[in-house]
Design a protein around this nucleic acid. Structure first.
Lengths: 191, 191
DNA sequence: GACACTCTGTACCGATCGGTACAGTCTCCG
DNA sequence: CGGAGACTGTACCGATCGGTACAGAGTGTC
C-alpha cells in the first residue's frame, strides 16, 4: 500500500454483493466495468480481487446466485408450501412488485438473458426461470388446473413480469408495471 | 490506403444497417464494438466513419430509425388503416412472429430500453412503443372496446411480446414465444 | 513483541476501446 | 485523359479495459 494511506475497516463479502448487483443491473454485464464496481463499493481492485479472485465473471455468478437464493426463499418456497393457492399467488404478486420497486428496478436475470453474456450464464439463467415456472405451476395444479393449463399460465405470468419491466422502462411509466401485475394475478386464477 | 491493397466495391449505406443492427441486437449497445461491427460488415473503420461520421452512437440511432420505419410501414400503418380489426390483429401477430423469427431473434429496442444506453436513446425508444401502442389501441377501439380497455389490452400485448422474447431466450425454448403469441391474439379480441 | 494472515490502495501490464488522420484507389464527369 | 470526390484499409492516438503484483497496514495468536 502507498505510504501514508490508512487501511479501511474490513468489508463483509455479504455487504458487497447487493452493491455489485446494482451495477450489473443498470449497466449490464459488458457495461459493468471494474471502475464502476469499485466506485459503487468504495473498494479498490486489490480488495475486489481479494474477495473475487476470478474477477468480473465470478462477481456476476455470485450476484446471480444470491438473487436466485433470495427468490428461492422468498417466493419459490412459499409457492411450493402454501395450501392456499389464491393466497400464495397474491403473495407472490405483492412480493414481486416490491422486489422490482413497482417497475423502477430491472431484472438482472432478464438483462443477462437478452445479452451476449447469456452464453456464460445460461444454466444459471435457465435454472432460475424454470424453478420459478415449476413452483408456480405446482401451485396452480393445487388450485385445480390441469398440468397443461398450469404450465401455460405460469409461463405467461413469468413473461408478463419480464415484459412489464421492459415496457415500463421503455415508456418511463411505472403504471404499466402495476397494471400488468394486476392483470397477471387475475389471469392466473381466472375461471 | 496501404500499397498493394485493392479498394472493394462501393458499399451501399442501406445494405450496412441490417448488418450493424444484428451486432447491436446480439451484443447490446455497450457490447457492440467497432471491431465487431467491422467484422460483420467487412468494412474497416475508414469506411464506417465515412458513412457514420458520428460513430457508434450514430450507427445505433440510424439502426433504431430503420427498425422504427420498418414497423411503421409493415405493422403500425396496417393497424391504423384496416377496417377489419380481427384481421389486422391476426396480421400483426403473424408479422411479429416472422420478424422475431419465432423468438430466435431479440428486440433491439427492448434491449436498449433495459440497458444504460436507454438514456441516450430514450425518446426514440419511447416513441417506438407509444406509436405501436396508439395504433393497436385505435384498432381495438374500432373493434368496439372502450378507450380504457383498448389501451390496457394494447399495452398488455406489447409487454407480452417483449416478455416472451426474454423468457424464450432465458429458457432457450422458442415454444414459449409461439404460445405467447397465440395467447396474446386471443386476449386482444376476447369477449 | 513477532509472526501469520487478511484486507487495503496503487502502480503497472498488455489488450482493446472509440475515434482520427491520411494516403491510396476507385468511379464518375467533363 | 485528368481532376474531383467517394470510398477504402491501416497506422496511429489517448483513454480505458480486465487483471496482476506488491508493499503497507490491520488484526489476531502465540
Amino acid at each position: 500500500m502507498a505510504k501514508g494511506t490508512i487501511a479501511k475497516t474490513v468489508s463483509e463479502r455479504a455487504d458487497l454483493l447487493p452493491l455489485i448487483s446494482e451495477v450489473f443491473r443498470s449497466h449490464g454485464y459488458e457495461g459493468a466495468t471494474l471502475a464502476l464496481i469499485g466506485k459503487a463499493t468504495g473498494l479498490g481492485k486489490g480488495s475486489l480481487y481479494h474477495f473475487f479472485p476470478d474477477g468480473k465473471a465470478q462477481m456476476a455468478a455470485e450476484v446471480l446466485a444470491e438473487i436466485d437464493h433470495w427468490f428461492e426463499v422468498n417466493i419459490f418456497a412459499a409457492l411450493r408450501n402454501s395450501d392456499d393457492p389464491a393466497q400464495a399467488i397474491s403473495d407472490m404478486t405483492a412480493c414481486v412488485d416490491r422486489y422490482f420497486r413497482s417497475g423502477h428496478r430491472v431484472c438482472l436475470v432478464g438483462v443477462i438473458a437478452l445479452g451476449a453474456s447469456r452464453d456464460i450464464f445460461s444454466s444459471q439463467v435457465a435454472d432460475y426461470f424454470s424453478r420459478w415456472n415449476d413452483a408456480l405451476a405446482q401451485t396452480l395444479r393445487r388450485a385445480g388446473f390441469s398440468a397443461r393449463v398450469a404450465r401455460r399460465r405460469s409461463a405467461d405470468a413469468l413473461l408478463t413480469i419480464q415484459g412489464a419491466l421492459v415496457l415500463a422502462r421503455a415508456l418511463d411509466d411505472t403504471k404499466v408495471f402495476g397494471q400488468a401485475m394486476v392483470d397477471m394475478k387475475a389471469r392466473l386464477l381466472a375461471k
